[in-house]
Design a protein around this nucleic acid. Sequence first.
DNA 1: CCTCTGATGGTCT
DNA 2: GACCATCAGAGGT
Length: 204
Amino acid sequence: MTRAELAIDPVDLARRLLGCVVESRSEQGVVRLRLAEVEAYRGLDDPASHCYRGRTPRNEVMWGPAGHLYVYFVYGMHFCANIVGLTDGQPGAVLLRAGEVVEGAELARLRRPTARGRGEVARGPAVLTSVLGLDRAHNGADLTDPESSVRLFAADPVPEDRIATGPRVGVAAAMDIPWRFWLAGSPAVSTYRRGGRVRARANG
DNA sequence: CCTCTGATGGTCT
DNA sequence: GACCATCAGAGGT
């Protein structure tokens, strides 16, 4: 995808990214996955965002430009990947939470031998990130660069009635903001309740 | 089916 | 030193 296509409000970008394909190439091979679940983190007034308390070395990439990867380390052992959207003076990105593996299931399984889904799906942001083989070395990677080892490919926009929404997962703040989006009925999106905090409903 | 917990270290106050 | 945008496995409050 082009930078212009990605330089939009992160909440709109989250919806736009559903169905799009992320490709990761390495010496091990190629994994491509179709995004099925994402979350938007936008602006200085979003208490769940890493940027809520201002610009720091960690969140630097979130301040733009659009189309770059923001990869962060969490819980002492996992990485999560985001795609930066329009910043326009405000930081913003979309967390990649789940996807269907459309190519490289064998490699995906090799990278996550114990993950649910047996390599055909990547459920959860840390699983998705490791299935793509991404870590801190990929922080800041340009997804719009044809030479990049990580790229993003557009899909036809998903019809509104195929998109479900709900509160973001694992955040204590802003539980009332429904900035989690997923493909209704996708096998990559777990219906498993996490800590009784997940509440959502498909629109169609 | 469900809920709870240990693992493990970077980041910021 | 508290707080994590988590995962997978264990065990039944």
